[in-house]
Design a protein around this nucleic acid. Structure first.
Lengths: 232, 232
DNA sequence: ACCTGAACACCGTTCAAGT
DNA sequence: ACCTGAACACCGTTCAAGT
């Protein structure tokens, strides 16, 4: 009767795919049972036939992006020669990060979930496998799991993004406010001035999230490499 | 008229304090305008006289715990002799973590806030001051800010807490399920077995969040110490 | 100035009813 | 088996009204 073409009878996969699409477009807050239902051309209560409830839907949502990362990593590594463990780990986390950047709502959602999604166990297993094969003890590998644990999740929030300062129009500060801030936070002010100068006055791009991420990742990788050789 | 003693006419501070108390007791989800109002002995709409709205209330909630951390650090450091930058930074983050542990809902809430709370600028300023005085360039100090940025936030979620496995009663896995898991995740299984053995069969406490946190913190501190001496 | 009641537009979820 | 309508118990927020 309706103009909406829909002959496939709906399924858990279609519901989750629509939920990801909705979250990408309007954020997680927008994915309510009612709105998701109407997006998929159905009444809210019909969703309960494919998903036990809102909470399970959110769990499914994080599983969906973790699976996307899993697939991206598999594609990256297939038919590839052997690499050392640092390169392997490095590229995996960079790939995971790129997937998270496609779904900026995901890290926040993962952080609020109380149970650890089953889909990440596969990542633990893979990471453990490469570390142990590289000579890590299970104890050191366990520490690495904790240390790297929040790597793909963090770093989505920029430190000083222009939009983070406040509302829509009040980004511009008065000279008096700037003076006041410079007085209260002299080192912060000096740092911003120094970095902006080096970057050629490009105020918007002075925090390069990708570069910062790689720096931290390499710092950790170097640290574990040192631990490894010290214990050998 | 009511038995609830309440002659002080309510204030932003009292509202926020009650909100923190409510979040500690029942989680952030429980702090709704209506429930918070009744907890403070008032009707929901009265709250709008002291707080602009729900969003501002949540912002106030994170400011409250950040301020608590600020106070704890100030108390820690006052009347204390000079220390090297690594000890100073280390103790600050450990203190911040101990505050976060008192309010387990806080890191998750901070993660979802879109704007960076003004109260953390003071922490940036303090951290920058000690790093720059220790010889960090503003560029390296900037990287440190990003690297350490998520330290006090992360690590609240335990990797394999008993409650994280599922509901209330289904923590126990059947032998068949364990066998299946051991087959699918051999390294994870071996790691757990190895660590549990070392810890004397204490399954519950085999992930020591505090120890893992300190390990990562020291790894990062060592990394920056090396960066610092290499560039000198 | 501070608090309130009623109302509005939304939630997640249950339940009996349709096909 | 799958979808629906009405209903319930909750949300945040506005607005006119009380003191």
């Amino acid at each position: 009767m309706s103009a909406r073409t829909r002959r496939t009878p709906l399924s858990r996969e279609r519901v989750l795919a629509a939920a990801v699409e909705l979250a990408d477009a309007e954020g997680v807050a927008a994915v309510t049972m009612r709105r998701l239902a109407s997006a998929v051309g159905v009444e809210a209560m019909s969703l309960y036939h494919h998903v036990p409830g809102k909470d399970a839907l959110l769990d499914g949502l994080v599983d969906a992006v973790v699976d996307e990362a899993t697939a991206a990593i598999r594609e990256l590594e297939e038919g590839e020669g052997p690499r050392d463990w640092q390169q392997t780990v490095r590229r995996r986390f960079l790939t995971a990060r790129s997937v998270m950047m496609r779904h900026p709502w995901a890290p926040g959602l993962i952080g609020t979930r109380t149970t650890i999604p089953p889909s990440v166990y596969a990542h633990y297993e893979n990471l453990l496998a490469t570390l142990v094969e590289a000579g890590f003890s299970y104890h050191l590998a366990h520490r690495a799991l904790h240390t790297f644990g929040s790597m793909p999740l963090g770093f989505v929030q920029e430190l000083f993004s222009p939009t983070a300062t406040g509302g829509s129009t009040d980004v511009e500060l008065t000279e008096a406010e700037l003076m006041q801030m410079a007085e209260a936070l002299p080192h912060v002010t000096a740092m911003v001035a120094s970095e902006v100068h080096d970057n050629g006055d490009d105020m918007l791009g002075w925090c390069d999230g990708q570069a910062e991420f790689e720096f931290t990742l390499d710092l950790l990788l170097d640290g574990f490499a040192r631990q490894l050789s010290a214990r050998r």
